[in-house]
Design a protein around this nucleic acid. Structure first.
Lengths: 120, 120
DNA sequence: TCCTTGTTCAACCAAACGGTTGACCACAGC
DNA sequence: GCTGTGGTCAACCGTTTGGTTGAACAAGGA
């Protein structure tokens, strides 16, 4: 799977069924059939979803006889939140900077350019 | 587009090209061709990516003659961070609770079951 | 007016996705 | 050993996705 980790995580959570599974697993570990119960799809489909979540690192699986308990791994969330926070912070900083600029120049007529380039 | 907002945002950011565009837009607004420059794809492909970002609410677009300046909308990020934080918090709370339980019962021999079920 | 620049629309294509069914494997219990 | 239960693997199918090319639209400049 050549996709980068961040793409895998975002992509895994882009599906509402998989997000519901994560929500369920946040309450506690569960088996495949337990996770499948609320959904109107085959067990195989659920198995596929879990594989996606596992490859994204969102979930890990152990063995208990025939059962394969699924466990939520919280660490990968950090990958996303760090990415998100970085760019949100930048965008917000940019806003603040723009505000400052606008506040600090009530009569500057545009330094280098000879005429106003931005109307309205 | 019937997909729910959260799915649209996650799905939009699941593509590395689109994440790069968001990164670029965090620095400042840009036109379509400016955004396309660093990538080895057609302008039409970039236009499609921007449409996806726009439908996810991550980006807004205005008019400036023939140009269509693209602007990053930071608010939608909150949708994601709120979802992420909710389930991460639950998972972490669960860890803490489990720790407490394990700490508070150093000699309980398994209440209801007659024999130990988990070896090693 | 025509030309150029910036962008989008439409049609197409290969690959990936989410689902299905059928066969199969792993283990517990009889 | 056989049988039942819990899950996975493999093949298939329709839809979506990310890309292409070619045509068209929108607006400024000659």
């Amino acid at each position: 799977m050549p996709a980068d980790p961040l793409s895998r995580v975002f992509s895994a959570l882009a599906d509402p069924t998989r997000r519901d599974m994560v929500a369920q697993l946040a309450i506690g570990d569960a088996t495949v059939s337990e996770l499948a119960a609320p959904f109107d799809v085959s067990l195989q489909a659920v198995s596929k979803h879990l594989k996606v979540l596992e490859e994204a690192g969102l979930v890990s699986r152990s063995r208990d006889a025939q059962r394969r308990p699924v466990h939520l791994e919280a660490e990968v969330f950090d990958l996303m939140t760090k990415w998100i926070e970085r760019y949100r912070r930048r965008a917000e900083a940019r806003y603040r900077r723009l505000d400052d600029v606008l506040r600090s120049m009530p009569e500057e007529p545009t330094p280098t350019l000879p005429q106003e380039g931005t109307p309205s």
